[in-house]
Design a protein around this nucleic acid. Structure first.
Lengths: 221, 221
DNA sequence: TAGATTGTTAATCGATTAACAATC
DNA sequence: TAGATTGTTAATCGATTAACAATC
């Protein structure tokens, strides 16, 4: 039951469950059944039970799931019960936007520094975060136990920047360049905005041919 | 063979094929087999032939695929042989970054206006794009045949903004808020940065348990 | 022609759904 | 206890891979 490998799909669904659990918990709701959670998220009750049982039996027959408990279990599975230190590489448009984006630090993902190679901006602050010289990356990462590097540099620099992040001992990368990055020995999430626009283009032209995935009755409120 | 519904996975793979084809075309390469394309993208030759045959028989036995032809076919499938007009809602950090992001307009996705409700910023220009009052959205969208609305507003406004975009006759939405949007009658792509960070968290903690998907030997250069 | 490689059908694999005994 | 709902196994469905005749 436990310790089986899980797919990307399972991970994404767990995050949806987690979001619903938080909303309900904030509303003071105590318990939920897989059926109710299914209605909220658009997945089947059966799939939800399967997903949760990759990690453990968090429910109780006849009762369902205790929301606070399940929330904490998922939180712990994802490692959300701690803080993460991040650095942004590239103090351009995207780097600046991320520095000012409040939703990261709220959730414990803090940007501790921004790095660039442009002397005109090095030494300045963006939203109280110092812009440092890229040459200081390695020392800074070691001293500050940086977990995540965010790549927000112009096209053509991605591989080189990724190599520097790996060299600095950073464990994972959030990559915003429209270049699909794969690198041995470091975890990568690619956020490819161009692909997202192209996908919209596809759906606008081929809407009818597209296999819809689960749609909830609204998991937010 | 044709007209079958395709899954999100197929769409994402087609985009990878398209990227490789562009690179090879720029290098002056004429033809490629499904086997070679497989090596470049990390998918099996069989899967590539299956994917392409959802849309038509673009290859030739004994030869493979003519790169320019296949590139144009995919381009046409995705509707990339035309320009798109986009508006950004929200002139905050993300909105500003998008306005200055060169990779959209290069590929024919142009931001024609930014909308906000803050009088302090309405009337200003961001990267030569005028910030307009949100109340002008509907008229502007109709007059300028806006295709895509990008939501870059603070948390809590997403549903309302999406409704306004739909009301303005806009066909699709790129949503940057950490709120999963579903809305009848309008196409939505959610870019959930929080989910991406959480997924990194999961992989850092459970790396070994994660089912890896196809990794190429490097599709870029 | 012979070799290569497609398009397509059949086989396999994995993921989702259904069923149900266990039990709170 | 009776009803509800889990955890888990079995059945189904869909997607990926393999095989191969067609043919350039």
């Amino acid at each position: 039951m436990k310790d089986r490998a899980v797919s990307e799909a399972v991970v994404r669904r767990l995050l949806k469950y987690y979001r619903v659990l938080n909303i309900l918990d904030n509303k003071g709701v105590d318990r939920i059944s897989s059926g109710q959670l299914g209605k909220r998220t658009g997945f089947t009750a059966s799939q939800i039970r399967q997903d949760l049982n990759y990690f453990g039996g968090f429910g109780q027959q006849g009762y369902g799931y205790h929301i606070k408990t399940l929330k904490n279990e998922i939180s712990s599975i994802f490692g959300l019960d701690r803080k993460y230190s991040m650095v942004v590489i590239g103090a351009g448009n995207i780097g600046q936007a991320l520095a000012g984006y409040p939703n990261f630090s709220i959730r414990g993902f803090n940007i501790s520094a921004i790095f660039d190679n442009n002397p005109a901006i090095i030494g300045k602050h963006l939203n109280n975060i110092l812009v440092r010289d890229i040459s200081e990356l390695k020392d800074f990462a070691k001293e500050n136990c940086v977990d995540i590097g965010i790549i927000a540099t112009p096209a053509g620099t991605t591989e080189m920047v990724a190599a520097q992040l790996k060299e600095a001992g950073i464990k994972s990368i959030l990559n915003f360049s429209p270049y699909d990055l794969f690198m041995e020995g470091i975890i990568v999430e690619n956020i490819n905005l161009i692909d997202s626009l192209y996908t919209l283009g596809f759906k606008m032209k081929n809407g009818n041919r597209f296999k819809k995935s689960a749609e909830s009755e609204g998991i937010n409120d």
